[in-house]
Design a binder for these strands. Structure first.
Length: 826
DNA sequence: CAGGGCACAG
DNA sequence: TGGTCTGTGCCCTG
């Protein structure tokens, strides 16, 4: 395949940073040497340059297999004269996709752009569903029609669970109503030629590069970069591919081999299985060169799949861990695990399950299957504690061999091996460490781990967090998440950082089976009173969000909904990202509220109160509720203000009510309300946020008028006077809570120009030190000593006097300076 | 040992 | 040279 000049075609999925660095690559033909240069100095420490290098390699790979390189061409003469006038419409021209005679018996279509449509109501649909999840990316799965897309990542995942490109092509061909477009077949074959060919296997602490393709083996051996990494004289050929035989995943009903066959049952009746060379060729690689080889394989467009032959690992000590006999894992969890252990080895990859569907148990079961040292990475210390508790709850592990490594607990386990639960920031921390935590890190880095469990894996692509991959030696990695989504494009990097997506559950299906709660979603449109709308229109974009959140009609709607649901005995959570609005709402309604500033003990107290007391059925939460608060009591969720268009946040919030304890009651329904100020930016954001959930099959109902709201007694802000008062109060309070007095005066005058809430007056954009938290009023605040410009100048003047180099005032420059320092040290 | 400082994520 | 705010975690200090 000739590489096209890609300048014009945007690469789907290439991260921004990757694209930037690619721009500096003069010519794609230089990649082999460029790929190698960064690798060596990356060896033991994952530096920033190292990960940039990685991003570049990833981008290179993604770019090579752009589906646009396999253009779909219509048969000549089929297009009519008119269609050329509707340019974008040519993509919708399916005239060349002739229906098969027996199309009524077949459940899906596939077009020339890799899009697959499945009739989910078709009697054949259940047969292909599992197959499609494996080979294609589910993009939208409402009730009746499912939409999938073939991408390189999905095909990568497919080959990694053991499907051959040929299998994929024949199966697609067999089940589609129309013939498989030739360019798609070509695309699949081409991807298969490269992906999944090379495996990096660890056997008995020795790393082997393994392939079934003899020619490829020769090519790898000849490669100058790789040949220096290999241990001479270790080429070996084994006659049979690894199988699932004899491996049982704990907690499953039967030997997992049976389940695995279920997946392939579609294929086996053809032929295959025996002919495409069961012999695997392998050679050993030096231990310290593993990452170099992996990077090199990526550069050669043969990304190496990491596999861990844990049953033949006799060097790392076994861990005494088993699921408690009573635990039975659910069918979909079993399916996840059968993908992971498909050929009897542990593969690295990502499993996507909705919140509350038992991600933790999947991770724990995987741990029980591998039975080696386990590292669990969690996002926060709270969730680390939860992981430990879950381990103890589900398994018979000796509590002394499981330990937490976070800032407040640093004791390693005592035995030969065990489970360590830690946080991302603990591992990635680059600054000076406390003595014992440094020792602990050394411990973590010095030994080999059987499995690394990455909780909330969607955070890993962040610049800092991706270091964990480099600094801990784990033979297999399992990422768990509910929302494999980021608003930036870095999510695709996970394919190479961790592994392909092994399984993605269907939310609707799970909720039909009663594993997660049924949810009614609604978007409530709240009109803005004229005086507010007026102020809103004149406000700067920044303060507009506050106006939206503080819309009195929204407040009334919220009040109404709370009253309504409280009368039904529901437990309600109200989310507001805007802390100021949160406080006003909660105080006004006399309800407890939690935000980042509330102390840990207070949080616990409030949560207990909410969960256990019947007098308290409503709780107000800021962003802290998005993650890691376990609120199984909640059944209704009201969203007052949110973070722009973050789909992840929306999904995660919905997840709060999915695990409702009462979900199995007859006819139980959870509710999710999103309050939106009419005719404001919120409308746009709201629709963006919902995309993910809509794709999962949730229907959002739009409510423009709440029934009998005007007849409800005691609504706040019912009169224009009250609303005006609110407007005034908003002004004064939001000013005085953060900013100094002088600016209050200015701000009052700034009403017309809309800068009133978060402007600091003076020079716009001068970044001062962060304003103190509202909980902790400082003396300086009281004395009005917060003149930003003054403080700022003084600070830098002090720095100068001290003889240090002038500290940059901006985050960006500070980061640059830090980076420079770090490099100097290395 | 609580809270400020700092760094980072989203 | 520029997005802002909020939340979280870790380290250090009074």
């Amino acid at each position: 395949m000739s590489r096209k000049q890609k300048a014009k075609s945007p690469t789907p999925g290439a991260s921004k940073s990757a694209r930037d660095s690619r721009a500096s690559t003069p010519d794609s033909s230089t990649w082999p040497s460029a790929g190698a240069s960064g690798v060596d100095d990356q060896d033991e420490l994952e530096t920033t340059e190292g990960s940039d290098e990685l991003s570049r390699l990833i981008a290179n790979n993604v770019e090579r297999f752009d589906i646009a390189d396999f253009p779909y061409t219509l048969r000549p003469g089929l297009t009519d004269m008119a269609s050329s006038y509707f340019q974008p419409a040519y993509k919708r021209d399916f005239t060349a996709l002739a229906l098969k005679p027996d199309h009524e018996n077949l459940p899906m279509w596939i077009d020339g752009w890799g899009k697959i449509i499945l009739e989910n109501f078709h009697w054949q649909a259940p047969r292909v569903q599992d197959f499609l999840i494996t080979v294609a990316e589910p993009t939208s799965r409402p009730t009746f029609m499912h939409e999938y897309k073939l991408t390189i990542h999905s095909l990568y995942a497919a080959v990694s669970v053991g499907l051959s490109p040929k299998d994929v092509v024949t199966t697609l061909e067999r089940f589609s109503k129309n013939g498989l477009p030739p360019n798609i077949a070509q695309f699949i074959t081409e991807c298969g030629r490269s992906y999944g060919k090379v495996k990096l296997v660890l056997r008995n602490t020795k790393y082997f590069l393994e392939t079934t393709d003899k020619a490829l083996l020769q090519q790898l051996l000849r490669d100058p970069e790789i040949s220096v990494c290999r241990v001479q004289g270790t080429e070996a050929t084994r006659t049979s591919a690894p199988t699932m035989a004899g491996l049982t995943i704990a907690g499953t009903k039967e030997a997992a081999g049976g389940e695995a066959r279920g997946l392939y049952s579609l294929l086996n009746d053809d032929d295959d299985d025996a002919d495409d060379g069961d012999a695997t060729h392998a050679f050993e690689i030096k231990d310290d060169k593993v990452s170099a080889v992996a990077a090199r394989c990526l550069a050669l467009h043969y990304p190496a799949l990491e596999e861990y032959d844990f049953r033949n690992d006799n060097v790392n000590p076994d861990l005494e861990i088993d699921l408690r006999p009573a635990t039975q894992i659910r069918s979909y969890q079993e399916r996840c695990l059968s993908k992971m252990f498909g050929n009897g080895r542990a593969k690295s990859g990502i499993i996507v399950l909705p919140c509350g569907a038992g991600k933790t148990l999947v991770g724990i079961t995987a741990a029980c299957t591998i039975k080696k040292g386990i590292v669990v990475l969690a996002t926060g210390s709270m969730s680390a504690i939860q992981w430990r508790d879950e381990f103890i709850k589900w398994t018979n592990i000796d509590p002394s061999s499981i330990s937490i490594f976070s800032s407040d607990q640093k004791t390693p386990f005592t035995g030969a091996t065990g489970v360590i639960v830690t946080t991302y920031s603990m591992v990635t921390n680059t600054r000076n460490r406390a003595h014992d935590s440094a020792k602990m890190m050394e411990f973590l880095a010095s030994r080999e781990w059987g499995l690394m469990l990455l909780d909330e894996v969607h955070v890993v692509p962040a610049q800092m967090f991706r270091r964990v991959i480099g600094s801990i030696k784990a033979h297999s990695k399992l990422g768990l998440t509910a929302t494999l989504l980021r608003e930036d494009k870095k999510i695709d990097d996970l394919n190479y950082l961790i592994g392909p997506k092994l399984y993605e559950a269907n939310w609707m299906e799970l909720s039909q089976q009663g594993h997660i709660a049924r949810v009614q979603c609604a978007e409530v449109w709240c009109p803005m009173p004229t005086e507010f709308y007026d102020a809103y229109l004149h406000a700067s974009p920044r303060s507009r969000t506050l106006f939206c959140a503080m819309n009195p009609r929204k407040f009334q709607a919220c009040q109404y909904l709370i009253k309504y649901h409280e009368s039904w005995g529901d437990k309600i959570i109200v989310f507001s990202d805007n802390v100021y609005a949160l406080e006003v709402y909660a105080r006004r309604m006399m309800k407890p509220f939690l935000y980042g500033g509330t102390s840990l003990s207070e949080r616990q107290e409030v949560l207990n109160y909410f969960c256990n007391s019947p007098d308290c059925s409503t709780l107000f939460l800021s962003k802290i509720g998005d993650t890691s608060l376990d609120l199984t009591e909640a059944t209704v969720l009201i969203q007052v203000s949110a973070q722009y268009g973050s789909r992840r946040q929306e999904a995660q919030r919905l997840g709060r009510v999915l695990r409702a304890k009462r979900r199995n009651e007859e006819g139980f329904n959870a509710f999710f309300y999103s309050l939106v100020s009419k005719d404001t930016v919120e409308m746009v954001y709201s629709s963006k946020r919902q995309v993910f959930l809509v794709d999962q099959g949730y229907a959002f109902r739009v409510i423009t008028q709440l029934k009998n709201i005007e007849k409800t007694p005691d609504l706040a802000f019912a009169t224009p006077e009250a609303r005006r008062e609110l407007l005034q109060k908003m002004l004064v309070e939001s000013e005085s809570s953060s900013w100094k007095k002088e600016e209050e005066k200015e701000a009052a005058g700034l009403l017309a120009d809309g800068n009133m809430f978060y402007s600091r007056g003076g020079k716009p954009g001068r970044k001062g030190p962060r304003a103190p938290r509202r909980t902790a009023g400082t003396l300086g605040e009281l004395s009005g000593g917060q003149d930003m410009a003054y403080v700022e100048q003084n600070k830098s003047a002090n720095k100068l006097l001290k003889g240090k180099k002038k500290a940059p005032q901006n985050d960006f420059f500070r980061a640059m300076a830090r980076e420079k320092d770090r490099r100097k040290k290395l």
